[in-house]
Write a protein that binds this DNA or RNA. Structure first.
Length: 272
DNA sequence: AGTACGCCCTGGCCGC
DNA sequence: TGCGGCCAGGGCGTAC
């Protein structure tokens, strides 16, 4: 389940390989992939011959900037972007739904078993606005004041963290891990957080996302980097999928509840 | 505006 | 060994 750290690792892997390179061949074989905008044939035709000016990330989205337009890629639950070069690397299989080949060699394979991911073109200038992407939690603008502002209203704090139009890039894993590190229960009303708790949460979010990137992501199900390698951050998880196991801080069994249809993990003793 | 829920999709797992 | 049934879950649409 690629969240901000996993998407950033893939971006860092791909930047030196695709930036400045021209797309020489495109194959999109899954109808669902372009469902938000255009058809596979239209997207493929538009991509052909374009040069990738930059590869950017906002939240869980990747933007292949092509000039006027950008190719937007969202990996959903099981999406992968794999780099293959020459005879080495990855072969197309039944879960490979798109392949972009680059002038001078090398190709990016898009694989996605559950097909929740998508790929489409948007005008570069307005893409972020169109997608209503919230504040970038690792940017300087994500201040305690900004988080406090986002906590207004009477929603649960975990719902706020997962709302991509408010904060971009946090998914189920990093929400649970950040809340544990901040000592805050996922069920707490966001509007009830005291200023000190908001400051702790903001710091915990940044720390846990940065640690995720440093360990090259959490490989819970299908996540792989652009070389097909899993990340190592799952070994650092303190609550996510540790229900029933003792809390690493106090020994209390980690609890798992359902919150908005999402598995939610927390320590009933450390998180208040 | 918040919240609840069904839907999409498939591999993996469980029970028989 | 086979097979039905269930689960995971990000984001979106719909209903309340």
């Amino acid at each position: 389940m690629p969240e901000l750290p996993e998407v950033e690792v893939i971006r860092l892997d791909l930047v030196p390989r695709v930036q400045g390179r021209r797309i020489s061949e495109v194959s999109i074989t899954e109808q669902r992939l372009t469902r938000r905008r255009g058809s596979p044939a239209e997207v493929a035709a538009a991509l052909l011959g374009c040069r990738v000016r930059a590869l950017r990330r906002r939240g869980k989205y990747l933007f292949f900037d092509l000039g006027q337009e950008s190719l937007v890629v969202r990996l959903g639950m099981t999406g992968q972007l794999l780099w293959a070069e020459g005879r080495r690397g990855f072969e197309r299989d039944k879960h490979t739904h798109a392949v972009l080949s680059f002038e001078g060699g090398g190709r990016v394979l898009y694989r996605d078993t559950r097909k929740f991911g998508e790929m489409f073109l948007l005008p570069t200038a307005t893409a972020e606005y169109t997608l209503r992407i919230g504040i970038e939690p690792l940017e300087p603008g994500f201040t305690p004041q900004a988080l406090l502002q986002l906590c207004r209203g009477k929603r649960r704090i975990k719902t706020v963290l997962l709302d991509q139009t408010r904060i971009a890039g946090i998914g189920n894993i990093y929400a649970d891990e950040a809340l544990f590190r901040a000592g805050i229960r996922p069920t707490r009303r966001a509007s009830s957080l005291r200023p000190a708790e908001v400051r702790r949460l903001r710091a915990a979010i940044r720390r846990v996302l940065q640690a995720g990137i440093r360990h090259r992501g959490s490989s819970i199900s299908d996540y792989r980097d652009a070389s097909g390698e899993p990340g190592r951050f799952a070994a650092q998880h303190r609550v996510y999928q540790r229900h029933g196991m003792p809390c690493l801080a106090c020994g209390t069994p980690i609890r798992r509840i359902l919150l908005g249809q999402r598995g939610t993990h927390y320590c009933p003793s450390c998180q208040r």
